[in-house]
Design a protein around this nucleic acid. Structure first.
Lengths: 178, 178
DNA sequence: CTTTACCCTATACATATGTTTACATATTGC
DNA sequence: GCAATATGTAAACATATGTATAGGGTAAAG
């Protein structure tokens, strides 16, 4: 990545700070005021350089349309599904207890959600009661994988097997001896 | 919290979506276009209601100056500490492997960090190898709490006891019988 | 039934904000 | 030294954007 001058780094840092304080980006004049400049041109130039060098992304013409490349959208907000209500699709509003941010490095695809674990049947796989399990819906389950299965109106976390055309769901309960 | 109408919720959801996609908030006309409306007034009214009811915060007059109350900056970026290098402070650059976003509902205070777990000594407490443990530095440890302790140059996760002035660190290894 | 809240169109205005042109000075790289 | 880059002032300009006024139709609340 191309090097920044001291001033350019100051501007980039201020953009970053402003966003974390306001949750929306600064205007050029916001930046101008902060550095005590008497013209908008200087700031404009710095922003231009930061865009050219790949540190910022900008939507031309739009107000406050700055994004910091990289840090920009590393987070996704997913719904938290608790006890499942009878007869409703899993992600129906009635089933959603909350929303939580997850790193996109975990929630890579869309449509993923958190399921709140009930019971201790999976303690052996380090999945405890009230844990939030990040669920990625997919059409198939691999033999022996841990999966979320809908049994009637109950969403359950179990290890999944098919033997002789029969589906088996295995809990994982350890017996602890001290 | 005051109830929202279906339309207001749609608008709020779109603001949220727009922010997660662009990392800066939408303008009133952005929202107008998305819903296919032919006047900005309707959108303005919805935003006004959302502000009145406490779901949005706005800086009057400023462009795109919308924040979603609560979820706004609900994320903190914390360093991930891996194997600890000899003689260096825990959060020295050499020890930091990565940075990761965490929900502020978990990382409430500043100075918290992730520690990558080595070994399986805490499997019984559902803390597995390579798990990331969120650490909150504090001056004291409670009797029987799980804590991160620095032994020489090794950061270790153990259950902490003091008995007769002697410190005891207990691992938690279960024996699993199938 | 009347009133209020909701939801929308149409038009206009004021200002916030990005962009540009012209000019100046200091620093850096070659 | 010379060209390119960095950094800045000054003054406009164009447009993006929030806000306001006027009005209408429907559904919910009293």
């Amino acid at each position: 990545m191309k090097k920044l001058t001291a001033r350019q780094k100051q501007v980039l840092d201020y953009v970053s700070l402003f966003i974390s304080e306001h949750s929306y980006p600064p205007s050029i004049r916001d930046i101008q005021k902060h550095f005590g400049l008497k013209s908008t041109k200087g700031v404009k130039d710095h922003i231009d350089r930061l865009v050219e060098k790949g540190y910022l992304h900008r939507t031309d013409g739009a107000a406050r349309a700055l994004e910091i490349v990289g840090r920009s959208s590393s987070v996704r907000t997913v719904p938290v599904v608790g006890r499942v209500a009878a007869g409703l699709p899993l992600l129906a509003e009635e089933n959603i207890q909350d929303y939580r941010p997850v790193s996109k490095s975990l929630a890579r695809s869309e449509g993923m959600f958190y399921l709140k674990v009930q019971g201790d049947s999976m303690t052996g796989a380090a999945i405890l009661e009230d844990d939030l399990v990040l669920v990625r819906p997919q059409p198939f389950v691999e033999q022996g994988e841990i999966a979320v299965v809908l049994i009637g109106d109950e969403a359950t976390v179990k290890r999944f097997y098919i033997k002789n055309g029969r589906i088996e769901l295995h809990p994982e309960i350890p017996t602890t001896i001290r």
